[in-house]
Amino acid sequence: MNLFRLVADLSHLASIFILLHKIQTTRSCRGISIKTQLLYVLVFVTRYLDLFTGDFVSIYNSVMKLFFIGSSCYIIYLMRIKYKPTNDPSIDTFRLEYILGPTAVLALIFNYKFTFLEVLWAFSIYLEAVAILPQLFMLQRTGEAETITTHYLAALGIYRGLYIPNWIYRYFTEGGAIDPIAVVAGIVQTALYVDFFYVYFTKVLQGQKFELPA
């Protein structure tokens, strides 16, 4: 574990708490894409199957995995059941098959081993890279976002961004260790946040509302 990854994981954790806080305090999931949230459930469930295969890493690792699975399911419960009336499917229109199809094909071709668990692991990495697209698409459509929602996205973006220095650090400290699947997907994932961060830094952090130019 290095500092980049620790802060990244804590930022990931923070993003989930920010999202929960947003939903609970406003009693609304307005502005949140349930499609993106559903994709995260799929990401965590397919990636963390190793919880059940006896490949124990650490208490930290297992607790985080369980938390990510549990909290993502809880968010779906909040959006689909508890605050269902505040969920507007008419603006959450990104087609999931555009994401699920290509990522499934990629996982079948590019994986470390053609086994059930390894293909699912690769799938979860590719899926995570693009899971934010329905959310960003929704933001683009509505052209604005609540400030708290932008903090959620910023924390997620920071989490992904920090994994890159983590890999560089690991490359130099662990004898050239590199995970090409995670690195390529991670760079793509981070790149998706560039536009968002531009508006976040120039507007939200200056105290203005998040609004996209018309």
Binding site: R5, F68, I178, D179
Partner: peptide
């Protein structure tokens, strides 16, 4: 170069 999956990453 050691290419592979680091099993400890989330």
């Amino acid at each position: 170069l050691v290419s592979g999956k680091p099993k400890d990453e989330l």
